[in-house]
């Protein structure tokens, strides 16, 4: 699992060229040039396919009513923020942003705390009932949330969590995947340091907090990012548990905006940009953690 993780895509080195380029013929140079051009052409093609829709949408969100949004030119001649203002006038978008931030941040923090506590115990301590606990956490990974969604709603309702952000947060506050990642991280630490700390008289709690936890910062980062992004992007569960439009998270709110209030594509485009730009910035700032997370979580998916 971690063997996959250490191989982040950008860490691959170019195989150093064996020392036989002296006799490289002109034909082979030409072949190489063609090869490179084809590759970059293909890359550009895929770029248009995968980034194009975002760019197009971003351009549309900046176009005023006078500009056609059907032309091949995605970029506005006279960029305007009017559409963003229109979003704020139609739905309580700042409230939605706040709700999404609360939900995503709480989910990240809670997953880090709960999963590292559980992961540490499962990795380090032998105790009666461990196999049962293992099976329980494994079951939470295997059972898709969609299967139990209706019953989770009933449980949340009897706990008084309907229409509250707590109700959005709690079911995913300690996912099986987070626990698995932390458990794997702690298992791969050398035991000796903790044993030394124990001889020095450190308590279990100190060993966990001062010795083990600082050594798994990378995995904590992965857990935090994945929990944050998942919570920010999630649609189905907030849609189920939140009833009052003033409590919506951003994803539900944006869908509400386009479904209920407006067919003005410029405004919808502005709404989607509000929901996606913060995440794209986060991603480009912290990309290596995202890729590492796919490695650690990919086994489960």
């Amino acid at each position: 699992m971690s063997a996959v993780a250490t191989r982040t895509p950008s860490s691959r080195t170019t195989p150093s060229r064996p020392d036989r380029p002296r006799r490289r013929s002109r034909a082979s140079i030409r072949r190489k040039a063609v090869n490179y051009s084809v590759r970059y052409l293909l890359l550009a093609f895929v770029f248009v396919l995968l980034a194009g829709p975002f760019i197009w949408q971003f351009g549309t969100s900046l176009k005023g009513p006078a500009e056609s949004i059907f032309t091949a030119n995605p970029f506005p001649v006279a960029p305007t923020a009017d559409n963003y203002v229109a979003v704020a006038e139609t739905i309580p978008v700042f409230r939605y942003i706040g709700n999404s931030l609360i939900v995503a941040t709480s989910s990240a923090v809670l997953n880090c705390i709960f999963a590292s506590l559980a992961g540490y115990v499962l990795a380090r301590i032998r105790f009666r009932g461990r196999t049962l606990v293992d099976i329980l956490f494994l079951a939470t990974i295997i059972i898709p949330f969609e299967v139990i969604m209706v019953s989770v709603f009933l449980t949340s309702r009897s706990l008084g969590l309907v229409d509250s952000l707590m109700g959005v947060i709690l079911p995913a506050a300690a996912t099986g995947l987070s626990i698995l990642i932390m458990r794997t991280a702690f298992s791969s630490l050398p035991k000796e340091i903790e044993e030394a700390a124990m001889i020095d008289g450190a308590s279990d709690w100190q060993r966990f907090l001062r010795v083990a936890l600082p050594s798994v910062k990378g995995s904590l980062m992965v857990v935090a990012i994945f929990a944050f992004v998942f919570a920010w992007d999630d649609f189905l569960w907030p849609l189920v548990i939140l009833k009052d439009p003033s409590n919506y998270t951003l994803t539900v709110g944006i869908q509400y905006l386009s479904g209920t209030f407006t067919s003005n594509q410029r405004v919808v485009a502005a709404g989607t940009m509000i929901a996606v730009l913060p995440l794209l910035l986060l991603f480009f700032a912290l990309q290596r953690w995202f890729f590492r997370g796919v490695g650690e979580g990919g086994i489960k998916g």
Binding site: L50, D234, F235, T251, I254, T272, A275, V276, L280
Partner: peptide, 12 residues
């Protein structure tokens, strides 16, 4: 860039 659609919400 090729990974960026993964990060976006399905709603977006």
């Amino acid at each position: 860039v090729f990974y960026s659609p993964v990060v976006a919400s399905m709603v977006v």
